[in-house]
Structure formats: structure tokens, C-alpha cells
Nucleic acid binder design. Structure first.
Length: 399
DNA sequence: CACCCGTGGCA
DNA sequence: TTGCCAAGGGT
């Protein structure tokens, strides 16, 4: 399977079992691109501070700072850092607090902590010299797959691949790879592509050329194809929509929500409330409760929401456990309680309806997944699920 | 694998 | 204003 004939309209649809482990690598096209990339890089590479040195330590600092951080932001931090810590020994000997101080404002502060610890490892385990092999580099704190490849190729001239957002974008467009780059197997395919294209002279420059092109020409929103050395053979451009690549599944950021619900019983009847029409689980019945506010403890949240929505006051509370439920757009954690005593008369606000019901009548009402799970947790039979119970009784394993 | 980690720039 | 994105790594 080539990248060209693998195109399809949407990422992630269909062919779910088909992976890129068997995908072919278009060696000839990569070889052509390789030459053009190096030639372009020789004439267009930006003059960046870390390109003026061959010191692996300095390059290591730059690669660490450049993780998820733009060049323009990094430059002043890089300069200050190397002035204060010109070599690995000075960094290893420093107080972590001082390293943090030089990192302030740059973000991702674990990078500073890991760098400090890794510098000490380099001094003690490697006689103060960074190892050259990616396997050894990756044992150092803060050096992952990308950074190991970057150091091996850029600092040590080894034919090691690297894949970052730029590389994925450039190669996805050049080869018109229309697969969801959010999938692990697709990213692995890009690592194979990157491993193929890096073989040859000047692997470090080749890797930097890929990234430089992605950062300056083949940009995410508006690629400047007129200025691109790969434009002539770019499949994404030929298809007319290079800016649409790489494809990424809309990861509708599932917000995590915590909520509480309570089994409130009075004289043998249990309180059920109906959600307002429209909105999440609109019109369905559930146990009274509500969403927790930020940092709010579950029991406190339950007292608050019952007071607000129903005007009720619980005089006793027993934790029954919690259930999880995944909606398309949010991840719910529901803390379930048993109210041991309740006082007050229902003054309903925020719910469409309420009823005091026998447990079986409550279980028979239409309700959503979270309530179904909560009732199961409480040991209440759910007539709606008798079919699944039958299947379980027949020995079927539920996924 | 999903989530978290910081900040600044951009449309 | 909001969401996306940027030379990722750790858990």
C-alpha cells in the first residue's frame, strides 16, 4: 500500500483494522526530496544561535528548550542559559533553584528539572560527555524519541530519524498521506519515512531542513508553495488542498466533569427528578444531585446542590461509591450517596419534575447511562437491562 | 492510551 | 473570544 492509493475522505473512517505497518516507503520520491531539501537548506537556513556551535551540550539545551516552544521565544533563554551554564559540569553543579530561575517564563518546567538531573547523570555515568547512541540518550531524563534522534543526527552526525510536528506536516503533504495522524500506527509510518529519508550524507542537516521547511514555508495554515523546493513533486499540492493536511481527528476535548447523585428515601419512596428538556440527557430521569464546582468535595457539593435545586437538607449521608461514564464530549465521574435522612419540603428549581417513587417504579423510568450505572451500584434492579442480564446468565461476556 | 504540563502567536 | 498550534516527554 502506498500513501498515494491510501487516500480517503475522512480520517479514522473505515479500514479500522488496516494499519500502516505494511505500508510501502516511496524510496525514490524521498531520495529526490532529500537532495532538494539539502540544497534549499544550504541557501535558506536561518542563522540561529545553536547552529553556530557543534557542542553537543549546547545543542542539547536548544533541543530541550525548543520542545513545543517557538524559536523566537527560545533564543533569549538559550543565550542566558549558556552564559550561566556553559558546560554540562556547571549545570550539574548548579542548584536546581537557579536552573528554574533561568527557565522562568519558558514553560514546561519539568524540562528544567529533567535537564538538571540528566546533566548530573552525564557527569557521573558518561564522564561528562553526552552519549552518541539513541538508546543511551533516551535513558537520560527529558530525552525522548524525538530529542534522541535530534542529538544523534545533529550533534553526532548519525543517520537517526526524528519526527516532530513539522516533519509530519511536510511529509504528509508531500506524499498526500490522508490518514489520521492521531493514530499511533500512522505516526509509526512517519517514523519509517523519516528513517528512510535520513539515510545519506549530512543526516543532521537533512533533519533540520525538514523542520525548517515546516516552520517557515510548509506552515500549518497557509503554506507558501511558491517558495517550496518540493512543490513540483508535492502530492498534497497536486491534490489542491495541502493546507488540509495532515488530517487530525477532531478530538472534541472531553472535559472532565464531577457530579454527585443521591438515593434519598422517605417512607419507602425514593426521590427522582427529571432533567429539563433539551441539553444533555434532556427529559430523562435521574437521582437528584448536580455537578460539583471546582475543588468542591463531593459531600459538600451534594448538600449544596440539593439545597439549591430542591430545597432539601440531608441529615445523614453514606457514600455508596462512584461510577464513570463517557459522553461524546465529556467524561463524567459520578459520586453516588445514600441519604440516610432528609428534612424539608421539595421546592424544585432547575429540574423539570420530581416524584417520590418506589424503587422499582424509579428503576422503570427512562434514564441515561450514568443513572443506570448508579442504580446498579446501589443494587436496584433495572427492568430496561433485563436483556443484558439474560445474556450474562447465558454466559456471554460483556465487553 | 489519555492526560498533563506553560506560554505566546495566530486567524 | 476561542481554539489551534508550536523542534515533546512523563506518567
Amino acid at each position: 500500500m502506498t500513501a498515494k492509493n491510501s487516500r480517503k475522505a475522512d480520517p479514522g473512517k473505515g479500514r479500522r483494522g488496516r494499519r500502516y505497518e505494511e505500508a510501502e516507503i516511496p524510496l525514490k520520491r524521498l531520495a529526490q526530496a532529500r537532495v532538494r531539501l539539502l540544497d534549499w537548506y544550504d541557501r535558506n537556513a536561518r542563522d540561529l544561535p545553536w547552529r553556530r556551535t557543534r557542542d553537543p551540550y549546547a545543542i542539547w539545551i536548544s533541543e530541550t528548550m525548543l520542545q513545543q516552544t517557538r524559536v523566537d521565544t527560545v533564543i533569549p533563554y538559550y543565550t542566558r542559559f549558556l552564559e550561566r551554564f556553559p558546560d554540562v559540569e556547571s549545570l550539574a553543579d548548579a542548584d536546581l533553584e537557579e536552573v528554574y530561575a533561568l527557565w522562568t517564563g519558558l514553560g514546561y518546567y519539568s524540562r528544567a528539572r529533567n535537564l538538571h538531573g540528566a546533566a548530573q547523570s552525564v557527569v557521573t555515568d558518561w564522564s561528562g560527555e553526552l552519549p552518541e547512541r539513541v538508546e543511551s540518550l533516551r535513558e537520560l531524563k527529558g530525552i525522548g524519541r524525538y530529542t534522541a534522534g535530534a542529538l544523534a543526527s545533529i550533534a553526532f552526525g548519525r543517520e537517526e530519524a526524528l519526527v516532530d510536528g513539522n516533519v509530519i506536516r511536510v511529509l504528509a503533504r508531500f506524499l498526500a498521506v490522508r490518514e489520521d495522524v492521531g493514530e499511533t500506527s500512522v505516526v509509526e509510518y512517519f517514523w519509517r519515512l523519516a528513517s528512510a529519508i535520513v539515510v545519506g550524507e549530512r543526516p543532521g542537516d537533512l533533519n533540520q531542513a525538514l523542520m525548517e521547511l515546516g516552520a517557515t514555508i510548509c506552515t500549518p495554515r497557509s503554506p507558501d508553495c511558491e517558495a517550496c523546493p518540493l512543490a513540483k513533486n508535492c502530492a498534497g499540492r497536486a491534490a489542491g488542498d495541502p493546507a488540509a493536511l495532515p488530517l487530525k481527528k477532531k478530538r472534541t476535548r472531553v472535559r472532565r466533569v464531577e457530579a454527585v447523585a443521591a438515593w434519598i428515601e422517605r417512607r419507602g419512596r425514593v426521590l427522582a427528578v427529571r432533567r429539563p428538556e433539551g441539553g444533555l440527557l434532556g427529559g430523562l430521569w435521574e437521582l437528584p444531585g448536580g455537578e460539583l464546582e471546582a475543588g468542591e468535595a463531593p459531600d459538600a457539593g451534594l448538600h449544596r446542590s440539593l439545597a439549591q435545586a430542591l430545597g432539601l437538607r440531608l441529615t445523614g449521608l453514606e457514600n455508596a461509591g462512584e461510577i464513570g461514564h463517557l459522553f461524546s464530549h465529556r467524561r463524567l465521574r459520578l459520586h453516588v450517596f445514600r441519604g440516610l435522612g432528609v428534612s424539608g419540603r421539595v421546592r424544585r428549581e432547575g429540574f423539570a419534575e420530581h416524584r417520590w417513587l418506589t424503587p422499582s417504579a424509579l428503576a422503570a423510568l427512562p434514564h441515561g447511562g450514568p443513572t443506570r450505572k448508579a442504580l446498579a451500584l446501589l443494587g436496584v434492579a433495572d427492568p430496561e437491562s433485563h436483556r443484558s442480564r439474560l445474556r450474562q446468565a447465558c454466559g456471554e461476556i460483556q465487553a
